[in-house]
Write a protein that binds this DNA or RNA. Structure first.
Lengths: 234, 234
DNA sequence: CGGTAGCTTGATGCGAGTCAACCCATGTGG
DNA sequence: CCACATGGGTTGACTCGCATCAAGCTACCG
């Protein structure tokens, strides 16, 4: 039984925001999802570390991120943790077949989401095909990300994992070559199937090799050699 | 660059069966999917090792397994391979957002599938909400499996990986405690992020520990201690 | 009966995990 | 304002699980 890295929950316990107002002013951070608002999503805000829902809870709602970052994770009985994905602005998650959530979702930083009540898909799809289309597209996107991530977890070296992660986050958060990671080392480690020590060491090595630069807090990363990083993706 | 286990392709090169007849007699092996036939899926048969489609090919069709087994996999440039999933009777796969397939699908054994022409989801969902519902459910199921598999790949030991795999396959192929695996060691290894040697050694050890019995060909496995195997799932 | 594909077994090595300090920034209370 | 605690990150020494390399075994097939 190796590698466990259960993050110490910084979260306030379960301080669920009690279902906000429907008012939807603009939502600048959102892209393609003006539709979502029309479907009557309820806006909710979660503090850093707070839990949106836990494994085993009733799955009455699914969510779309407006701003911030959510980590979606599963735990083994002895505390080993795997973060399946980080959900950023626009991403949809928490849709289940069964009655219960099969994973936990927590806010990595202050995060705003839209919560949608789950109905029968058939009805949903029939009433608003465009939203159904968006949902299906979103599910397929999640699946594609999951498939790419399985290659990473199953077959890539630590260096390749970090390179892939950095390029992926750069693509999704992109502001030039400067990357501001919202999550800490523990989260990165649990996402990539590594330990925090290995994450740290690999990043340090990449600095030595001139691939990246690390900001003071360790959260700001400048990709100085994207080409080399890209070649490490496999 | 470790761990590569690119399987030697036994496959006949690209001998695509030329789009069969629409006749759909009963399809006993299928469960819930009588609907599928009504949607005009085209029946196709693939020989052991044959390729249904490859990464990068036009994604004009998606598929549902009628009988047999399909492996869905991705390759890194140097040949390392990850099998994302095994698709068994009833499973739907190959649905993409983009115009091209993002992974390869190959028949593990003689396999019969239904091929569906992909249209705009919106139309599809609107025309036949029940089929849309089935599709959405199927996508969510795939995603759930992928999430469970990421925990396995990222955080489980070799022994736990094998135990989980055996219990999973038993649940899907179940005929009592006797399990007839359709795939070879190479496929199992590439699915679990291991090498064939480790798969073999771990199985041998499980025999010694009295958890399983191995048939002569190595493909038939009897689960003699399901409880212990279950406890190894984490 | 020889060739080969798939599986198993053994000896050895390495990449990443484990254990343990240590650093630094931030926050808090006396 | 300083002493101290705390959380997040880095670094080093050592260990170990699984990969690698290399035979050998068995069943099947021409």
């Amino acid at each position: 039984m190796p590698a466990y890295a259960a993050s110490t929950r910084t979260a306030a316990p379960q301080a669920r925001i009690p279902a906000g107002y429907l008012a939807m002013q603009g939502s600048a951070a959102l892209g393609r999802s003006a539709l979502a608002d029309d479907r009557g999503g309820t806006r909710r805000t979660f503090a850093k570390g707070e839990e949106l829902f836990a494994e085993g809870e009733a799955a009455d709602f699914f969510y779309q991120v407006v701003s911030g970052t959510v980590r979606v994770c599963k735990l083994l009985s002895d505390g080993r943790r795997q973060i399946d994905a980080f959900q950023l602005a626009g991403d949809i998650f928490g849709l289940e077949n069964g009655a219960e959530h099969r994973f936990t979702a927590e806010a990595v930083e202050e995060t705003v989401v839209l919560a949608f009540r789950r109905g029968r898909f058939a009805n949903l799809l029939h009433d608003n095909p465009a939203f159904g289309d968006q949902l299906m597209t979103s599910m397929i996107t999640s699946l594609e990300r999951a498939q790419d991530h399985m290659v990473l977890l199953g077959r890539k070296t630590a260096q390749e994992k970090i390179a892939t992660f950095l390029m992926d986050m750069a693509g999704r958060l992109a502001k030039g070559d400067r990357l501001d990671l919202p999550m800490q080392r523990t989260d990165i480690a649990d996402h990539l199937g590594l330990t925090i020590e290995t994450v740290s060491r690999t990043l340090t090595q990449m600095v030595r090799d001139g691939l990246i630069k690390l900001g003071a807090a360790g959260r700001t990363i400048t990709l100085t050699d994207k080409l080399a990083l890209q070649q490490l993706n496999g």
